[in-house]
Design a protein around this nucleic acid. Sequence first.
DNA 1: GCCGTTTTCGGCCCGACTGTTTTCAGTCG
Length: 591
Amino acid sequence: MKNDFSNEKIAQLLRDVAASYTIQNEGKFRFQIIAYQKAADTIEGMTQQLRDLYSEDKLDNIPGIGTSISASLKELFSTGKVNHFESIMKDIPTPVFRLLEVPTFGPKKAYKLVTKFKLANPDTVFEDVKKLAEEGRIAELEGFGQKSEADILRALEEFKKGKTKTNRMPYPFAFELAEKMIEYLKKSPDVVEAFPLGSLRRKRSTIGDIDIAVATKKPQKVLDYFIDYPYLERIIEKGTATSSILTAGGKQIDLMTQNPDGFGSLLQHFTGSKQHNVHLREYALRKGLSLSEYGIKEKDKGVQKKFKTEEDFYQFLGLDWIPPEIREDEGEIELALKHNLPKLVELKDIKGDLHIHSSYPIEPSHDLGRTSMSDLLEKAKELHYEYLGFSEHNPSVGNHSEKEIYQIMKKRHKYIEDIKKYNKSIRVINLLETDILADGKVALPDNCLEFVDGLIVSVHSVFSMDKEKMTKRILKGLSHPKAKILAHPTARLINQREGLTADWNQVFEFAATNNKALEINSWPTRLDLPDTLVKQAKEMGVKFVIDTDTHDVIHMNNMLYGVSVARRGWCTKEDILNTLPFEKFYKWLTQ
DNA sequence: GCCGTTTTCGGCCCGACTGTTTTCAGTCG
């Protein structure tokens, strides 16, 4: 292969092709534009790298990528460029594509500015446009005016501060922002109901804008109240049914209103995903029905049928209600039609948490927990768990001799045995989170491991390694007879660190055949294994445990985030080992 | 350019809002 294009880069390239078509002749290329954008969406949501699929000759059968684009991708990987793309893009100056990163800049606006002012340098284009706006020259252009010039300046300023089209925050952070807004909205007497929608309701691991829906008979009053929000920075827009604001933290909140008798269709519409809705509407259209946030219209009649609840809306179309977490157009519509949707795992199914760092002084290689074992067990009772696994990091190998480590482990074992005597209501499992070293060995010698029931193994150092080496390393670590759970498998940190590169299919196959579990880690910036990989692994027969990776007793509340990831990965109770009662779980762990 | 439980040809989701316009273009979700 002559190059190393990431999915992200390829998606960007396809979007640039779509933008070029838009600039050339939007009407003529309408459906090509949609097709290229859809392909880009698909690629952005994939966890497998296209370049790997290409080298395995598996580029066909990706939904949204047909014969034409797949041929282009093959050309891209074998030659480093695509002639067809280049001919489409050749008359569009590169600064145009840079400007498209800025919210409110679409292809037409960007092209007009770049060509009218002959902006040639992609590296200075933001500064160049800013200068033109400050000099009042943009307002002179046809189709622009004082206001749009001011909007451009502001958009550039906010872009500089980090408001881009692609910037997303971790789910739990968005969740809190939304809660705060909903609490505020519910104080208004005109608000009948208020719900978070969009990717927030689908519980994606990262969230762009926050969407909120309100049922009301007085939309205008609610919108007025909305823009009175105390943490408002500015109003982005406000109409008769919807409004958008920027909050003090620079985050956008969109509000949609609807009469209570049509609230079901509003929920459905703004929960998305876009692909789910498009697919659902295409299906409805074939039956002569037109769907929107207001309800369902029969094609030839003008009457709008309204729906109070989502269940009614889906039912009218002959579908079962679909859990928001799987509304990603991954086959859920077909299954809902056949009344054959999976029953997804729920928080109340969880019977124990295995990844808990207590404050027990084990002199670890990484961070120690802050809460004592007995306080953690109290919390486990509160959560109605049956069992809890303590899994501090292994004692630091660099700072101790083998003999010392042996003593530390022996002492901890005795301590845990004592704890068990005093805590009869929660069963205690003696685990250890152990590093998989760069050579694939687990960090502790075998004789020190006789004191634990099982190992949680994980990668905590040397993250960049070539794919083959990393895969071997993980498989070797997981091969240890005591190793039962691979913790936060990709080691990604949302918005901070890319996941490590490994052949996940190989890892999943190994886990499935050797009865090893993969962890779904609930830590807000981990959420690892990521949902799309969970789905892939599940299809290969892999079992999971959902853990919190608790370092302080309050983290034990994070379990719901991991459950959301499992649900987005289509997991049922049967896929999750820590839904098992203690005896069965312990048997699996120690067999 | 993609796709198929009416189709391998002939369709392709539906609407809100703003700004610059007198009926629409552009962007967004």
